[in-house]
Amino acid sequence: MTTNAATGAVKRTEKSSSPWAIARRKFLRNKLAMASTVFLILVIILTLLAPFLAPHLSPIPDITKVNISKMSIPPNGDHLLGTDKSGRDVMTRLLYGGRISLLVGASATLIVVVLGTIVGSVAGFFGGAVDSLLMRFTDFVLNFPFLVFVIVLNTILFGIVDGLWVLILVIGLLSWGGVARIVRSKVLAEKENEYVLAAISIGTPPAKVIIKHLLPNVLSTIIVQATLLFASLIVAETGLSYLGFGVPQETPSWGNMLAFANEPDVLQGKPWIWMPPALIITATILSINFIGEGLKDALNPKSQR
């Protein structure tokens, strides 16, 4: 397989396609990454369609209403995955919960990528005092034990800002350090290229140089980083919610659903309540990781596949 792929790549480069087209072709040929992409898209579509699907999946599509008469029912024809301890349909909650978990992951990733890219590219481009100041600050943020500070910050902001955004902001604001470092080092390397020096010498404003010339070249790195971050930030959400420091309890999220495993009777006696979120979290993270690996391969001009 390796040799085939290699010759294929070589053949196509001869036709001098753009690097992006090559990457796309490489990615499309990566079966694992493609399967993962299909899975992830499926998950996203299903969760987005939750309000439309819910009435067809369950006789009780309302995810906030407590149904005392229908508590803790094992999976059956009416409730494909059973109901939880509040009498809410697990399948329905899984779909709605996915929206929240994916939303938290995606929004936090966006914050991280934007912040990290701005800080990293500015530091890398200007260098000198700006660089050392920004990098000191980055070190400072990186040196916080993440979990510890998320827990403390989340406790403080709880109730002041709407719960979900607290979590997104806190996770986002504490995680950008890594991206900033990577972007900076890439920019530092790119900056020395002649076309950049030329652009600077003819007086192009720094913002334009960064956006037009430097960022496109570090974009591939950012994309790969963002993918992997997306996965780890979903883990952050679910983990924090599991510990009771995450999304407010009234909002269903995969982490909050898994937190039911903390209940004495659920872990052993009612596995249908905690296993579905546990499995879907794992599957989602796994698929995002595969996509990330696939992208890394595809975007790496040196890779053989």
């Binding site: 996965a231 679910t238 983990g239 495993a261 794992t282 796994l286």
Partner: peptide
């Protein structure tokens, strides 16, 4: 390896207690 990277430690922990301890 893929499982180790993808399964969040709390999920793994809960499974571990369930199977290996109980």
């Amino acid at each position: 390896n893929y499982a180790g990277i993808a399964i969040p430690s709390f999920v793994a922990g809960v499974f571990a207690v369930y199977f290996f301890a109980f």
